[in-house]
């Protein structure tokens, strides 16, 4: 999605693997991005400082700095959307990156469609125009003002916690939220150990939003990382 002014958005790729950079470059350009490349964390930071991009793709396996350090530095002076790329076994790394300010993640090997979607989502939030407080996706309708939740037209009664949970997701649609983030926002900083609360309430929420289906199509579990509210068109 291009930004409102119709100028191509710039994507900065920070990855030490030349092959990956090449492929991403081609793919992003094919999708109307302007692409800048950097092969080390330091290079990436300086690039981002000199010519602020619209979105950054950051590989977590950089030789000179680890992803979280890059993010922390970036976040000191920039709120540019960052999507981090890592391998599947390194969940801790990803959680750390997300908690340090990354907006979303993909795991290698990834489908480019997925990456593009995440990039879009990440950019969108920065460009969020305050508009209607009503969130709509598929059969789900959430009015953040009146706190009324409707599924397929019929109202669903949620407990206060369930509502807080849902509204948190609604405020970050299509973005991954780590367990810790959710716990902190909904239950407060002293409840960071209580993933059991989280599980229970997510399960309840799912039941309420889609009682007929065994699989919830709204709240997606990102194994080992967190949850994501999936938007349906």
């Amino acid at each position: 999605m291009n930004d409102a002014r119709g100028i191509k958005p710039t994507a900065l790729i920070i990855d030490d693997e030349q092959q990956i950079r090449r492929l991403l470059h081609a793919c992003l350009e094919a999708n109307d991005y302007k692409v800048v490349e950097a092969s080390t964390g330091a290079e990436g930071i300086s690039e981002a400082a000199q010519r602020p991009p619209d979105v950054i793709i950051l590989d977590l396996g950089l030789p000179d700095m680890d992803g979280s350090s890059v993010l922390k530095r970036l976040r000191q002076w920039s709120s540019v959307p960052v999507v981090v790329v890592s391998v599947r076994e390194r969940e801790e790394e990803m959680i750390a990156a997300l908690d340090s300010g990354a907006d979303d993640y993909v795991t290698k090997p990834f489908r480019t469609g997925e990456l593009l979607a995440r990039l879009r989502v990440a950019q969108r939030h920065k460009n969020l125009v305050s508009g209607s407080p009503v969130f709509r996706s598929g059969g789900l309708e959430v009015d953040l003002n009146t706190r009324i939740v409707k599924v397929n037209g019929s109202e669903v009664r949620l407990t206060p916690i369930e509502y807080s949970l849902l509204s948190l997701f609604v405020q970050h649609p299509s973005r991954v939220l780590t367990h810790q983030h959710i716990l902190r926002e909904v239950w407060g900083p002293n409840s960071l150990d209580h993933t059991d609360y989280l599980r229970v309430h997510i399960a309840h929420l799912r039941q309420k939003l889609e009682p007929d289906s065994s699989r919830s199509s709204y709240l997606k579990t990102e194994a080992g990382i967190g949850y994501r509210l999936v938007e349906k068109d």
């Binding site: 599980r199 699989r215 579990t221 194994a223």
Partner: peptide
């Protein structure tokens, strides 16, 4: 890394 898990969720994922 032991943590509370929902079995149904596990199966689904």
């Amino acid at each position: 890394k032991l943590d509370w898990c929902d079995v149904e969720d596990l199966v689904q994922v």
